[in-house]
């Protein structure tokens, strides 16, 4: 494919110039938006390095006058963030795995087969996302009480799966719809069963979609607050967003620790994103096989 590109652009020099101009525009757009993102994040970093007295100084200190890493250390001492991170990792990893696996199955079923209740199921999946989630809190609590699941990882895993599975299913269905059905047919003629077609023909072509749904499920679970707060009780069972939320007090916000904790919480997400990022880079493009 790169060969084709080189040949193409090598032949047409005016295209080359045009490309340079578009590249320049592209970089300007990227820089503009990156600046808009970096600006508040710099303030987060700056705040995390300040001591209490400098927080609200006038004029605001963009670069702290008395920078200190105190909050980055103290946040682990004052609060069991190690346990919070452990819980979040367990809950969110398992929930993401279940969500992505099950939704890939369901999406394949919805994309490739016609069956009774097909449309109803799609609408039903959607309905669960259209209902205000705050009103799900009490019914969920009652269900988990009945099954003795309050204050367990299982309750959060089930909750997060039920929150993310509808979007993942719809998204993957859209993705599978984009993959030509001729591939299934060809494999079928070769004698492959439905499950094998799904696993060895369709899934390998769907990595970008799977990566996107994985990232979505992971981030959604990682940042969920109110259900995690209500469904857990012990300090040892709380998750990272609950720990972060607890730094916002009734009368006082522990700004430096709040920011430090948020920055720590970015690390696992960034690692996961970098890992899955390769599926968004060309080279894996399924196009060649598809036509």
């Amino acid at each position: 494919m790169t060969m084709i590109n080189e040949k193409k652009y090598g032949l047409m020099s005016d295209v080359k110039v045009a490309r340079k101009i578009t590249n320049l525009t592209s970089y300007s757009v990227l820089l503009f938006f990156s600046a808009l993102i970096i600006f508040p994040i710099l303030w987060i970093v700056s705040t995390s390095l300040k001591n209490e007295e400098d927080l609200f100084s006038l004029p605001p200190q963009i670069i702290p006058e008395n920078p200190t890493l105190h909050a980055f250390k103290q946040v682990w001492i004052d609060h069991p963030f190690l346990a919070y991170f452990r819980n979040s990792l367990i809950v969110v990893s398992i929930a993401t795995f279940i969500s992505v696996t099950f939704s890939a199955f369901a999406a394949y079923g919805l994309s490739r087969f016609k069956f009774r209740g097909h449309g109803t199921f799609m609408a039903f999946l959607l309905a669960s996302q259209l209902f205000p989630s705050i009103m799900l809190l009490i019914p969920f609590y009652k269900i988990y009480m009945t099954f003795g699941l309050i204050n367990t990882h299982a309750a959060l895993i089930i909750t997060y799966v039920s929150f993310t599975i509808p979007f993942c299913t719809w998204m993957m269905r859209g993705y599978f719809d984009g993959i030509s059905k001729d591939l299934d047919l060809a494999a079928q003629i070769d004698g492959a069963g439905r499950f094998r077609i799904f696993r060895s023909v369709i899934l390998p072509l769907s990595w970008p979609g799977l990566a996107a749904t994985t990232i979505y499920s992971f981030i959604s679970g990682w940042n969920e607050y109110i259900f995690a707060l209500v469904l857990t009780q012990d300090e040892e069972m709380k998750t990272v967003p609950v720990g972060i939320g607890q730094l916002v007090g009734e009368y006082r916000i522990d700004w430096a620790q709040l920011m430090a904790a948020s920055l720590y919480a970015l690390i696992p997400l960034t690692v996961i994103f970098i890992f899955f990022n390769r599926y968004f880079i060309s080279g894996l493009s399924a196009g060649a096989v598809k036509e």
Partner: peptide, 22 residues
């Protein structure tokens, strides 16, 4: 339709049990 049900069942069960009651 049997295959369709086979693939969608796990998701259906989860969503059904957690959404229909609320």
């Amino acid at each position: 339709s049997r295959s369709g049900y086979f693939f969608t069942l796990p998701t259906l069960l989860i969503v059904f049990s957690l959404i229909i009651y609320p």
